[in-house]
């Protein structure tokens, strides 16, 4: 063993947090998942009545319990982990829960900047910003920003990239 003590990844976390309302957004999404997963099982249970297999009630209960625990525990955790930062040189994000992911894309290689408002995000006045480079593997996404902050960020990024010469490959 060369290194006795495991070292942390020597990257500092990005400067900004996402909107606190993002917690609500993640929770709502988890609840939607809950409905999608549990509703069919409940429907089958009700429809078949007494002849439904015994394990179906168990799986329905287990699915509901797991998703509910996720809804309570994980979104606040995600909020603490998810961070982003844009400097004049680069876009830098940190995301993920079980698998953390740091992404860095130089501003000079940015090709397009998209903002996106899903139905749930519109409800909470949130938006996601996707920064695409020339690579198929490279998009850097910032989820759960305040919608006006996202618009401002997209505008700023678009201006910066247009000022940069070259075809960004």
């Amino acid at each position: 063993m060369a290194t006795a003590v495991p070292t942390a990844l020597p990257l500092r976390p990005p400067a900004h947090q996402v909107s606190p309302r993002a917690v609500r957004w993640w929770q709502l999404r988890a609840l939607v998942t809950l409905v999608v997963l549990v509703a069919p099982q409940v429907i089958v249970l009700v429809a078949m009545g007494g002849s439904a297999p015994g394990w179906l009630a168990w799986t329905a209960g287990a699915t509901a319990a797991v998703t509910l625990v996720y809804t309570v525990v994980v979104p606040p955790l995600l909020y603490r982990i998810h961070r982003w930062e844009v400097t004049p040189e680069a876009v830098y994000t940190l995301s993920g829960w079980l698998v953390r992911e740091w992404r860095i894309a130089p501003i000079s290689r940015v090709q397009t900047v998209d903002t996106e408002h899903g139905p749930l995000q519109q409800l909470l006045k949130l938006a996601s910003v996707t920064v695409t480079t020339a690579s198929a593997r490279g998009p850097v996404k910032i989820h759960g920003l305040e919608d006006h902050a996202a618009a401002e960020l997209a505008r700023m990024l678009t201006e910066t990239t247009q000022a940069t010469p070259g075809d960004a490959t």
Partner: peptide, 27 residues
């Protein structure tokens, strides 16, 4: 033209990371 670092909880425990060099070419 960019980097992605990925670290699962197991990798975090053993102090490892997988990195990916992002490029316009190939994959």
């Amino acid at each position: 033209i960019g980097w992605t670092f990925r670290q699962s909880i197991f990798q975090r425990r053993s102090g490892m990371v997988s990195l990916e060099a992002i490029t316009a070419a190939g994959a």
